[in-house]
């Protein structure tokens, strides 16, 4: 017998898969209702404690990956990974990728007229500590234009990818900056209804800011939580 405790469903802030203002969703989003399946071991398990073997060593400082320092405003992005029951998610992987300070990605499909920075790749990876904390050093990415509609510009953002403890907790999202007027006219951010959209806006924090070195931003990432509290160190069979 292997009855498992599942994870909670999406909450009121969930992003819909179809948001017509973001045009690529129109032909790529499922039209049938998602099927609710029984939770099994397959959905409540996930890789753990093997991040170095799986993905390599941590890359928490994106400003020291090349010969010289990248151009742009040096920033610290830090926070905790928690579940929605407010428990820390320790020893979990946080992957990030972003554009450079001019808003250009190191990618052949990004061909707009902004400079490449040879000293900036924009990919990072960190593992949360026992309290669920992570910390990246990077540069603030620039805004960039995209082809969704005439004069469309993405607000400055950092892409984030988390696995969490289970297949059910997988999350890919984006972090935005608090002083950015482009957020409110961005179809991708706007797919998230207010006020929940503000969950994607980092906080500038003077205590995280390092004097004479880097501005600090805080961003907590909240993964799905268990539907009930699991018994610690017990087989869940009943």
């Amino acid at each position: 017998m292997q009855d498992v405790i599942g994870y909670r469903p999406e909450d009121a802030g969930a992003t819909p898969s179809l948001f017509a203002d973001y045009r690529s969703t129109v032909r790529r989003s499922p039209q049938r209702e998602l099927i609710r399946i029984p939770y099994t071991l397959s959905e409540v398990t996930g890789p753990a404690g093997c991040w170095e073997r799986l993905m390599g060593t941590a890359l928490a400082d994106l400003t020291t990956q090349h010969r010289d320092a990248p151009l742009g405003q040096r920033i610290i992005v830090s926070g905790r990974v928690l579940d929605e029951n407010a428990r820390p998610v320790p020893n979990t992987v946080v992957e990030i990728w972003q554009a450079n300070a001019a808003g250009r990605y190191i990618h052949i499909r990004d061909q707009w007229d902004a400079p490449i920075d040879p000293n900036f790749t924009g990919a990072g990876r960190a593992i949360t500590d026992a309290e669920g904390r992570y910390r990246f050093v990077t540069i603030r990415p620039g805004a960039y234009p995209w082809g969704n509609h005439r004069n469309a510009w993405r607000p400055a953002h950092i892409h984030l990818s988390l696995l969490g403890p289970a297949f059910a907790t997988r999350l890919v999202t984006q972090l935005y900056f608090p002083d950015d007027p482009l957020i409110e006219i961005d179809p991708i951010a706007n797919a998230v209804p207010m006020p929940y959209r503000n969950r994607l806006v980092a906080r500038f924090d003077i205590a995280t800011t390092v004097p004479n070195w880097a501005l600090g931003y805080l961003f907590d990432i909240i993964l799905k939580g268990r539907a009930q509290t699991p018994f610690e160190d017990h087989d869940h069979a009943h």
Partner: peptide, 13 residues
Amino acid sequence: LFGQTPSQTVGPY
């Protein structure tokens, strides 16, 4: 606002 961080696209890059 505490609750699940909403999903966003992985994008093309």
